[in-house]
């Protein structure tokens, strides 16, 4: 699969999901597919009028249709219940790993990245409906922790 097309400036808000999709393209195509679908769906609500955005959205749609055919035997791509379970499991594993590192005072860029990515993947789960109370709390905590540890590292402080 080719690289994800560059998104126009008006769609900057979806860049994070596309980056996670690109990083998972070969590692976990299910995560990559749903991050792109979530990005596309969000983009439709942000800018579908500018020429740049329209061209980008059509390319993304083409790409997702090709992916869906390519992975027609993968239930976590063709079936939304299986997809939700796969993504929830993946995001939770990442979140629990980051939390365990945090509690063991192992602070590093990889812990920031894991908290951040899990927070973004909890966002992607909204594609399948409203999040449970627990997932909502995890999402809030993951995003806050990622920002907090990131700032501490940047300022040379030790996270508490």
């Amino acid at each position: 699969m080719t690289d994800i097309p560059t998104c126009p400036p008006t769609l900057k808000a979806i860049q994070h999901y596309l980056k996670i999709a690109q990083e998972h393209a070969s590692r976990d195509p299910v995560v990559a597919y749903w991050c792109q679908l979530h990005a596309l769906q969000s983009a439709l609500g942000i800018d579908r009028k500018s020429d740049e955005s329209k061209a980008f959205l059509v390319k993304m749609m083409d790409r997702l249709e090709v992916m869906k055919k390519e992975f027609k035997d993968n239930e976590a791509i063709t079936n939304e219940v299986a997809a939700q379970a796969h993504l929830e499991n993946y995001a939770l594993k990442l979140f629990i790993w980051a939390d365990s590192q945090d509690r063991a005072s192992n602070f590093g860029k990889n812990v920031v990245k894991a908290f951040y990515t899990s927070g973004m993947l909890f966002d992607v789960l909204t594609t399948f409906g409203e999040l449970s109370e627990e997932i909502q709390q995890n999402r809030k905590y993951a995003k806050w922790k990622a920002a907090y540890i990131h700032n501490c590292l940047k300022n040379g402080e030790t996270p508490v």
Binding site: L37, L40, L44, R48, K54, M61, E65, K68, T78
Partner: peptide, 27 residues
């Protein structure tokens, strides 16, 4: 009439993208 034409065109394109996304999720 130019603006009406443009607005109709935009709305048709929007519908097409929405329909494609909906079909993609139902496939």
């Amino acid at each position: 009439t130019g603006s009406i034409g443009t607005s109709t065109q935009v709305s048709q394109e929007q519908d097409e993208l929405t329909q494609r996304l909906s079909r993609l999720r139902q496939m």
